[in-house]
Design a protein around this nucleic acid. Structure first.
Lengths: 333, 333
DNA sequence: TGCATACGTCGAACCGGTTCGATGAGTGTA
DNA sequence: TACACTCATCGAACCGGTTCGACGTATGCA
């Protein structure tokens, strides 16, 4: 493989001149630059990433840490992964994807060996054990999801509380007074997925204020329990006139269940939910819903992270909630 | 950050001694080793990945190249990503995930800058444009999927032909003589997803041999077209007694469609398919099916790749088809 | 004509590891 | 007692880049 030294020799200049021609950090005469460029293409030279990283302490790689929980709905996760990867590339960064079961150890391993310039964490728990190693790392971090303690990290998340309020308001406005809330699986609450209780608590608080009776249930994450539990819940609350589904796996299964039961939407039951618009591509989800916007979230997180890599003090740590958008699809009355 | 030099000073030895203590490539006295180890933990030293990569020409990173086609079913993709990542970690490698729209350029960029020790390609097209830059790369590659020309790469794939034959045999044995085959979306054929026609051609050939009438249709990849097309196909062939679904997005939608139509399985229609077992976790798929085994495929691909990284000539290039497994779920009669 | 400035290039040092050859001390053997 | 080996360690070179200071030459301005 051609090195910068080979290029220098071929072009009859010094290695430093080639480096400056490449980076543009010092002026190089037109003629020399051309000799160098032709030498580069003749030799098929590309800078060695490891060597550059060693010299500059910049790898141009972001670490993406995620965990595959059994109770997670795969399409949602992929949406984040993809958006993050695309956004990173637009900023000139590649993605090192780390899925180790032992999250904190992985964070320590990757950051302390200097493999990445910055960190993105998905699937944040309320007391996320990965935050501690992250805080003592040299690299800045952006979280997608809200932990208890946001010190030293940038946080991006949907405003789940506001999302819940929007949905409850919407139903209240239509006259609903008995509503079922299907929350994420119990595991998510136990693991500390704060988005789950932020949504639930806001919905409960709002319902209480309006005098709405809110029946709250945990959803299931895997078939066939998902279907069984959906049926059981609907059986248990025949008087409810509306259903709020905050549960990806269940919303995907809902159309068939309602079909089976002969329940018409919104005739017999109004349904609102919360899911990425992209779900609608793979699944038939004709429900009025808040969009969780993984793409927007990913984009913001990456862009801020990159800015912070370039200038660690460009701003105090950010906690940014993105505004929920309600998309009306006619599933309520 | 502590460097190997800091450790050496702290332990009162030379840098090379520390390096040998770390790698075990030369004998080090018990006593010196202990001094070094204590210095390492006192200083919190970790080797710098870039420096090591530069010195050894080994990055301990695998490049995972994938593309997000609009017509792809997300859960399937994620299953591969996750399995590859886990398998890689077990072999001591991390994953650089590359999703650039321009595949060949990305391959060139990553390989020539020496960011990875080996390459894994997903989503192989019959004439995959990424293969050319791959062949001139220093790093070995493993493909999950079969291209036209397998020269210089290791290939791993499900034996789609055999899968089709197994399914047709199964249906023939039960007496079916009029069968619908729902193939992948037209785009997949056009793009050169060879698995699509390998399956279809084998099914057609087998059906012809048995005197089975096979109605072949392209599936759709996005809602609401998926549902519309499923209904249209079933309407068009009321006399068919069995349905073979080789289409992830459609199989996920099928239960509801059949429900809606009042079609009972296997009473009115026998259904067989082809999907990863893991789909059954998120979706209710009570269908007899071939398992596509992303996990097994990923594992084999990674392990072979690693072996080839260590010894490029350990064996001639491999084309390995894994044996399809039929799981009976009682959806045929 | 003289001096300060800008331009273009070079050499050397450095980033943080690994590895090869050399060296001195200790052990076994003829 | 001399010689050959092994063991433990060190110093130097190297991997392939970047960057700083220096230097010679051309240019601008007084």
């Amino acid at each position: 493989m051609a090195t910068i030294g080979d290029v220098a020799r071929e072009a009859g200049v010094s290695r430093s001149t080639v480096s400056y021609a490449l980076s543009g950090k010092r002026t190089i005469s037109q003629e020399t630059r051309e000799r160098i460029e032709s030498a580069i293409s003749r030799l098929g030279f590309t800078v060695n990433a490891g060597a550059r990283a060693l010299a500059t302490s910049e790898t141009m790689v972001l670490g993406l840490f995620l965990q595959f929980h059994e109770d997670e709905f795969p399409p949602a996760m992929l949406q984040y992964i993809y958006s993050i990867s695309q956004a990173a590339r637009e900023e000139g960064y590649d993605i090192l994807m780390v899925t180790d079961a032992d999250g904190p150890a992985a964070v320590r391993r990757i950051t302390s060996s200097n493999m990445v310039d910055g960190i993105i964490l998905l699937d944040i728990a309320h007391d996320d054990p990965r935050l501690e190693p992250l805080r003592s790392a040299r690299q800045p971090a952006a979280l997608i999801g809200l932990p208890r303690d946001t010190e030293g990290v940038d946080v991006f998340d949907l405003d789940f509380g506001e999302a819940a309020r929007l949905l409850v308001d919407h139903l209240y406005g239509l006259g609903h007074r008995e509503v079922i809330l299907l929350a994420p699986p119990r595991h998510v609450f136990e693991r500390g997925g704060a988005y789950a209780w932020r949504f639930r608590d806001a919905a409960m608080e709002r319902a209480a204020r309006y005098g709405i009776t809110l029946y709250t249930y945990y959803g299931e994450s895997q078939q066939p329990a998902i279907n069984r539990s959906l049926n059981a819940i609907l059986d248990a609350r025949p008087s409810a006139t509306a259903l709020i589904v905050h549960n990806d796996a269940s919303i995907a299964a809902l159309p068939q269940i309602l079909q089976e039961r002969g329940t018409s939407v919104p005739g017999d039951l109004s349904v609102v939910s919360l899911f990425p618009r992209e779900f609608g591509r793979s699944f038939q989800l004709p429900y009025t819903a808040i969009e969780t916007s993984p793409d927007a979230l990913a984009r913001e997180a990456v862009q801020h992270l990159v800015r912070r890599i370039i200038d660690p003090d460009y701003a105090p740590p950010i906690v940014k909630f993105i505004e929920p958008q309600l998309t009306i699809r006619g599933s309520t009355a």
